[in-house]
Amino acid sequence: MRRRMMGEKEQERKHKVREKSMAGIKTSDKELRKVFAETLEALMEENPDVVYLEADLAGAIGTTGLFRSHPKQAFDIGIMEANMVGLGAGMSVKGKIPFMHSFGTFTSRRCADQTFLSGCYNRANIKLVGTDPGITAETNGGTHMPFEDMGIYRSFPEMTILDVAEPHLLKEIMKKMAGQYGVMYIRFPRKGKICYYEEKQTFEIGKGVILREGTDASILASGVEVAEAITAAEELQKENISVRVVDMFTVKPLDEELVLRCARETGAIVTAENHNKIGGLGSAVAEVLAEAGAVPFLRIGVPDCFGEVGDRKFLAEKFGLTAADIAGAVRKVVNKKGS
């Protein structure tokens, strides 16, 4: 049995597909991997230069059909992520636009030097796709649970990093990725979906989206933590704490202008991410805030430790990533503001 597929089927049986919608919004009835496969297919139909390279996880992300339907554009490379990134970079020099998928651990750690040199330094045009970021790796466990991927890539010059968990956002941002030159890394969970965008919502890489207005503090969140942030804000509303929620799906380049605006207009900031506290969204926001003159600030993220097996709820509680954790952090920064 292949090492990365252990327990997948069992996991499917045990856990119902996660589904959630915020404020009654339901933009998609498909889980994220389905959105990925369909959007990729549409992009390949639209532009013959868009290609898809897969490192033997098509069965896991539901793209096997693309090899048959698009034999000149979709390829299973085999279990060789470092080679895959180099191939994609070489193809991009000839004008191709490769999307390359594996689990997030393997499209970051495993091929970091290839992404740096063959990709970034070579000024290639490649789109790295890392699925099941952080706790969404669930029963694949600590070996497959990237809490470090954004930290690694955030130090690579000119690289774009996207942390996504919403179907409409995933679809729209993939189109932007195909149309914009450069080395990009997107992380999203394969399974489930959490909807909080209307179909009409548009996005720009590098621009955060204010999902909810508030005056006492701002939560800047990315990926699966956005939904937790919305829940936290709803809870805090009951305590008359008014919280702005921002989807900072672009972790790099960070929307610094919006970070500073949130600091200015709400006076306190909490970040929330499904990633090590070191190196990701919280670090990026901290850098901006520290240089601008501090406001009360706390980070919600994984406390510099390794992942482990477990379901998403258990892991979120274990690593302090729940809506309650975020709400607790907001209470602290709001209190500090007053002191």
Binding site: N83, G86, L87, G90, M91, S92, S118
Partner: peptide, 12 residues
């Protein structure tokens, strides 16, 4: 790394 880059270019 040049081996993969060259293979990618040739593949394209």
């Amino acid at each position: 790394q040049g081996a993969s880059l060259a293979a990618g270019a040739a593949f394209a």
